[in-house]
């Protein structure tokens, strides 16, 4: 399996806090990789460094063969990478469609579009469609997303990432606030994304979810990768051992 995304020896400090201490990570084409680790292990920091929110202090990040370390978020989007951030990164005052199309608004056809006029109807219709796919029942799609429940907001963020990602979707705890049917819908969605040939990085604390949907598992501990596991060949005890430090894989580095 060729690596689509590969991070090597990434370090990132916030003042005195060393969030990443030479972290490595890899995702292959069409693969679902779960990134696991205790709270504060550095998972969110690692993926923010990958998608351009932070620039790494040191280390290498390669996507499809070329270095992407230090690129801007929009440059990373341009490569077909989309992210569901743990803090969701929605605009709470805007409605669902506006958030779905944030930064890539559709413009009206013809002259109006030249003046920057939005195609609001088209965006709203698409939004409703996407949400239906995700089994999210939003009573009023024209209401600000701040008025949605936490789970509904999470679904909007997931929908946005999946909509725009051509090659890789990164999800930072996308099901943390979701009910059972919605979680199942997201897991189904992850499988569909993989079946469409795209790759997925899933950060989750839910072992059953991870076991159900991932092909591989990489475990981060104190800012370093401590295990690379194939889901079919591992079990929950081994994963928990890696997360807590009870067990370390020699060559995970």
């Amino acid at each position: 399996m060729t690596a689509l995304l590969e991070a090597r020896g990434v370090t990132k400090r916030f003042g005195a806090v060393e969030a990443l201490r030479g972290a490595s990570f890899a995702v292959g084409e069409g693969e679902v990789v779960a990134l696991m680790g205790d709270n504060g292990a550095g998972k969110s920091t690692l993926i923010k460094t990958i998608c351009g929110v932070y620039a790494p202090d040191a280390g290498e990040i390669r996507f499809a063969g070329s270095s992407i370390a230090g690129l801007s978020p929009s440059a990373v989007h341009g490569l077909g990478i989309e992210t569901v951030y743990q803090d969701l990164a929605l605009a709470p005052d805007l409605d669902t469609a506006a958030n779905l199309f944030l930064g890539r608004e559709l413009l009206a056809a013809g002259l109006l579009g030249r003046f920057g006029v939005l195609a609001k109807k088209r965006m709203a219709a698409r939004a409703v469609q996407v949400l239906t796919d995700l089994k999210v029942a939003i009573k009023d799609p024209t209401a600000p997303v701040a008025t949605l429940s936490g789970g509904q907001q999470q679904s909007v963020a997931v929908a946005r990432a999946v909509t725009w990602a051509d090659r890789l979707v990164i999800m930072d705890e996308p099901t943390a606030a979701l009910g059972v049917p919605q979680t199942r819908a997201v897991l189904d969605l992850i499988r569909r994304v993989r079946d469409s040939g795209r790759s997925v990085v899933l950060i989750s604390h839910s072992l059953p979810d991870v076991m159900a949907v991932s092909d591989r598992i990489e475990v981060l501990r104190l800012g370093r990768r401590v295990a690379r596991l194939v889901t079919r060949e591992t079990d929950e005890a081994q994963i928990v051992g890696a997360m807590t430090g009870a067990w370390t894989q020699e060559d995970a580095e």
Partner: peptide, 24 residues
């Protein structure tokens, strides 16, 4: 009705989200 207006709201609503969405 324009993208400019929409982005004005977005920035005021959550500047960090707008930034991560690639808005300058």
């Amino acid at each position: 009705v324009t993208r400019y207006g929409r982005r004005t709201y977005a920035i005021g609503s959550n500047a960090e989200a707008a930034r991560r969405a690639g808005i300058s």
